[in-house]
Design a protein around this nucleic acid. Structure first.
Lengths: 336, 336
DNA sequence: CTGTTAGCGCATTCAG
DNA sequence: CTGAATGCGCTAACAG
């Protein structure tokens, strides 16, 4: 059987308080007693039971993470940051994947609450306002990370989307492009960041007296890319676009594939660039020029923010932290 | 403040034992008392504290998962299976990522042990025998999931690698290929599954009186693919190979890219296929014909096995469960 | 510096 | 059917 603090106390011939003191280094203990305790711990291979400890200290050192889908690369990258920094501060990650089911997420909130998590991180593509409301009610501090939606009334960390598309558009213009189309995602546009992304693009275009062209896609799949292609194929062939800036890497890749199927070469005939900077973008050919979102850092900053609030016991400020992006210049864009 | 069982008892005017009984449905309670308790629970929004509960029942309902890198797609897919099935049985996942550091993994084992996890799942590309030894010592049941290494002396779930390459080779032969090269990974070959994969390939070839050609790669990166290409470029140009069967999808993709850079078309000039079946393989062009390893199922079966042992309190059998693979027929292989 | 005591929140005997 | 009492393993006053 695994040994307890009592066993150690008995063997070291001291009280359990003394054992507790040397374990936690919380109060002075005589060198002699400490030696004996340490020895007993060694011999018995004693390890404090964290469950018991949590019960009395009311510190679980647990952070719950609710994700949309752990299989999603974006989610996994953010999670890396969360996990690594969390561990650095001695917190463990309780992971749950909701697969987009909002009711399931509500259940997780309760579950995590019962497990006494000290905070929660939400990593998702979708929006669950009911969940945020519930967490407020439960008085569990939380940080929201969402790539798509514009989050308000919650602590969140993200990028400056408008600035990001502005920079990329500027880069394309610097490379000599003037006929740049922006392929946007129409879904839920009034609540997503797409609005800001379009703004950044348009601003950069207008500033150089270029006419912006926003092309709308209904989704990010191959089918959606096909639909987009149908719409713009003639324009592309006619040279109406020299560059297509797609709102997500995966869409850019599907579009590149469709272009290639139509005998249109990237970047010789038309340049393409994406947004995201996941590993995908450097594996496809041509390698994709894209806006790199700092997923790892987003996760890292989010948990830092959360833990700061937890450790200092002050309420989590419901503000937004913006992290800088980077333009990854690769081969899918050519200079004109 | 969050309410406890005492508050509920007081409000319902019963003892805490009665409250406990209705919560756990463990012993008969009079309808009247039950009603009052339920009402109090409702009003106070009472949720049992799982930490306290764990302490007394000695059941944490926690499974520790130690992974090499959560950012790895393969790991993430397996984790999906683990998480989803674990949750189905009411277990939570404690996640930790070691980034390949074996000492860190040892620390995780201790940490998890202190957190009273009831079992551990190892998902990795690397091998940590010290860790397995330690877990045995700690008496924590565990299941190992490793894509590369041949695991012995541990409960594990994997695929029949020999059979998998046999099937794919057979498929290539059925498609009319006779000059099939197999690109293998040399690293640690005496302990990895590569040996079995080569065996399956060779067996299929020999059975059809074809001569096997194993080509060795030092790694899975682009550089490694380049090295391989240097070795075989002339052979490929001379038509010595009509198909290249690569030991991993990512290697196959890099090789396709290199081939394409050399002006060699896939699959017109040479067919290429991979092994793994991660999402990557269907995004590249041409889409990659590959062996689909059932990552999700591997995770699912692993945790089932683990939980069965946990729940029935019988020792985990240190055997290997084999799961079937599937050949994904796509566009990187053509019929001759 | 040290031991005794009192809980943390809950499940579970054991008497009624 | 119910309540009082005990203890899970540990930390934290408190009194020496």
């Amino acid at each position: 059987m695994t040994s307890t603090i009592k066993d150690v106390a008995k063997m070291a011939d001291v009280s359990i308080s003394t054992v507790s003191r040397v374990i936690n280094d919380s109060k002075p203990v005589s060198p002699e007693a400490r030696r004996r305790v340490l020895h007993a711990i060694e011999v018995l291979d004693y390890k404090p039971n964290e469950v018991a400890r949590s019960l009395v200290t009311k510190k679980s050192n647990l952070i719950g993470v609710i994700v949309n889908d752990i299989g999603n690369t974006y989610v996994a990258q953010v999670l890396r940051g969360v996990e690594e920094i969390g561990r650095m501060f001695n917190y463990d990650i309780l992971l749950s994947s909701s697969y987009g089911d909002l009711d399931v997420e509500m259940k997780f909130a309760n579950l995590f609450s019962q497990k006494q998590v000290e905070g929660i991180i939400l990593i998702s593509d979708i929006l669950n306002e009911r969940l945020m409301f519930k967490l407020d009610e439960l008085m569990i501090p939380y940080v929201v990370i969402n790539r798509f939606y514009n989050i308000e009334d919650a602590a969140t960390v993200t990028i400056n989307n408008k600035n990001a598309t502005y920079k990329m558009t500027q880069y394309l213009i610097d490379e000599g492009h003037e006929k740049i189309g922006y392929v946007a995602l129409r879904k839920d546009m009034d609540r997503t960041n797409e609005t800001y992304k379009i703004k950044g693009y348009k601003e950069a275009m207008r500033q150089c007296n270029l006419k912006p062209h926003v092309i709308y896609s209904e989704g990010l799949g191959r089918e959606d890319a096909l639909d987009v292609m149908e719409d713009i194929l003639d324009d592309v062939k006619d040279g109406k676009y020299t560059a297509l800036f797609c709102t997500q890497d995966i869409l850019a890749i599907h579009i590149m594939n469709e272009l290639s199927d139509q005998g249109i070469r990237v970047p010789e005939d038309v340049s393409v660039c994406g947004f995201g900077g996941t590993s995908l973008s450097e594996i496809v050919r041509p390698t994709l020029t894209t806006v790199k979102e700092p997923f790892y850092d987003i996760g890292a900053v989010a948990i830092r923010k959360l833990l700061k609030s937890v450790e200092e016991k002050e309420e989590l400020k419901k503000d937004t932290v913006f992290l800088p992006v980077e333009i990854l210049k690769r081969n899918s864009v050519r200079s004109l």
